[in-house]
Amino acid sequence: MTPVPIVLDGVTKRFASPRGEHREAVRDVSFRVEPGSFTAVIGPTGCGKSTLLSLICGTERPESGTVSVDGRPVDGIGQDIGFVFQTDAVFPWKTVLGNVAAGPRFRGVPRARAQALAADWVRRVGLAGFERYHPHQLSGGMRKRVALAQTLVNRPRVLLMDEPFSGLDVQTRQIMSDELLSLWELTRPSVVFVTHDLEEAITLADKVVVLTAGPATVKEEFDIDLPRPRDAREIRHHPDFVRLHELVWKALRDEVRVAYERGLGAA
């Protein structure tokens, strides 16, 4: 499927607090994701990164501004959008094959065809031989692979990812980053990837968007002009990686400090 642009233009979103007050989660946010590109969004804890994903996928609506996908305003959850969550969104009662086949079946694909598609994606994520296993029989990294296959089998034109590797150890995160890049290259959806990990953001992305401490605004955008294909471990030794890390960290550092000091004040 042809990848599509994602455009946020002056987007503001508020939520009601327990006291009945309205708190701004994001304020006047504008950025663009080019078709088939990989954009990482990074910022301090609680600044509104996940809210942006909710606005793009259509589960939340902005108070002002517009969110558009493929030139059309987002007015609900679209079938062309895939979402990989921080926690494993797998069905514990289904096998690996059953989990991956669930999306195509829900979309009306005949059972035999859905099973064949699922088997192909199970192989692509390196889980051939584990088709009949259930999630509780898998490691954390293997469950993340199931979640990726479960999403990518539907060939989404937009892929939203909310810190999908945050619960994994460093070595497994690097392996999963390589897996993700390889799988992304197969269909090239337009990706918005939320993370707290600056190295992860630079390793994966074509562009890094730095958000301010909440309410989130776009502080700065950085083009990541590192060569592709990338190896998650090797690319971090590239001289331009070190240069980009320093540039992005200078933009991010003050926002992290602000968020930390707010947390001390609240305590």
Results as ranks from 00 to 15, higher is better:
N154C: 03
K219T: 08
R111F: 00
S166N: 12
V210Y: 12
A119Y: 09
Q150S: 10
Y133P: 00
R145S: 10
E200T: 01
H134G: 01
L204P: 02
F165H: 09
G140Y: 10
A149V: 08
L180A: 07
E179S: 00
L211Y: 06
R155M: 00
S177H: 07
S177C: 07
T195Y: 07
V125W: 14
G141N: 03
F130I: 10
D197Q: 02
A149R: 08
E221L: 13
T172C: 06
Q150I: 06
T203M: 12
R228P: 04
R188L: 00
D223N: 03
S139H: 06
S182L: 05
Q137E: 15
M161T: 08
V218F: 11
L127H: 13
D231N: 15
D197Y: 01
P104Q: 03
R132L: 08
R188P: 00
L138A: 12
E179T: 05
D223R: 11
L181W: 01
M176A: 03
V170W: 11
V158S: 01
S177F: 00
E185K: 05
D178H: 01
H136Y: 14
L183S: 02
V109I: 11
R155F: 01
G129W: 05
V109K: 03
T203D: 09
T212V: 14
D225Q: 04
K207N: 07
L198D: 09
S166K: 14
A213K: 13
V158H: 01
I202H: 07
G103Q: 12
R230T: 11
R188V: 00
R143T: 07
V194S: 09
I202F: 11
F130N: 12
H196S: 02
N154Y: 00
P215C: 08
N154G: 00
L226D: 06
Q150K: 15
F193N: 10
R107P: 04
E234V: 15
G129C: 04
F222K: 13
V125Q: 09
R132V: 06
E200Q: 02
T172L: 13
P229G: 12
K207L: 04
L211P: 11
A118I: 12
L180I: 08
A114W: 00
